[in-house]
Computed example of a mutant assay.
Amino acid sequence: MNPLLSAEQAVLGAVLLEPGQLAHLEWLAPDHFHRPVHRALFTALRKLRADAHPALTVEEVVPLSWVTDAVDEAGRHVRGLTAAYAHTLIQSCPRAAHAPVYGRMVLEGAIHRSITRHAVRLHQAARADALQGEVEQALHYADVLAGVLSDLARRWGTEPRPVAPPATAPAAPVSFRADQVAEDERFLLAVLAEQPRAMDQVVDWLRPGDFADPAHGQLYRCLGALHHRGEPIDRLTLLWEAQRRGLLADSTLSGDQLTAICEGMGPGDAAWFGEQVLRASVTRTAASSARAIRALAENEALAPGRLINHALHALGPLDEVRIRWQTANGHPAPSARAPAPSSNAPPPARVHAALTRSTPRSASPPSARPGSALNPAAARSPSRGHG
Rank of each mutant, 00 (worst) to 15 (best):
A146F: 04
I90S: 03
S92F: 06
R95T: 12
L145T: 05
V174Q: 05
E136K: 07
P165D: 01
G147Y: 01
T168I: 07
R117Y: 04
E194M: 04
W156F: 10
E185Y: 03
A126T: 06
V181P: 02
P173V: 04
G157Q: 09
P162H: 05
L131R: 13
V181H: 04
L122Y: 07
M105D: 13
R177H: 11
I111H: 03
A86V: 14
R95F: 12
V163A: 03
F176V: 09
R127H: 14
A126Q: 08
C93S: 07
E136A: 13
H140P: 08
V101H: 04
A167S: 07
A83F: 07
E185K: 02
R177W: 03
Q91H: 12
L139F: 08
R121L: 15
T158P: 05
V106K: 04
Q132R: 13
A119H: 07
Q195F: 00
H87R: 12
A142N: 03
L152I: 03
P173I: 07
Q91L: 13
V120C: 02
A169N: 06
H118D: 15
Q132C: 14
T168G: 09
T168H: 05
A193E: 03
Y102G: 01
A167F: 01
F176C: 10
G109K: 05
V144K: 04
A128H: 09
P173A: 03
P162I: 00
A110T: 10
A96R: 07
V163G: 04
E185W: 02
A178T: 10
E194R: 10
E108K: 02
P160N: 02
V101P: 02
A125C: 11
L81H: 02
S150I: 05
V106L: 08
L149A: 00
A84G: 11
H98G: 10
L152R: 12
A193K: 05
T116D: 14
L131M: 13
R155Q: 15
H140D: 14
V181K: 09
D184E: 13
A99M: 10
F176E: 13
P100D: 00
R186I: 12
P170I: 01
A190G: 15
P162S: 06
R104S: 12
A153M: 05
S92N: 10
A110G: 07
V148H: 04
A84H: 14
A193V: 08
E183C: 10
R127C: 08
L81T: 11
L188C: 08
H98V: 04
A130Y: 02
T82G: 10
A138M: 11
G133R: 11
L188P: 13
R121W: 03
Q137F: 06
L152M: 09
L89I: 08
I111Q: 04
H118N: 10
V174A: 06
A86L: 11
L122M: 14
S92K: 06
A178R: 12
H112C: 09
R155I: 11
H123P: 06
H123F: 08
A86P: 12
S114P: 09
R104W: 03
P196E: 14
L188G: 03
H140K: 12
A153L: 01
A164D: 02
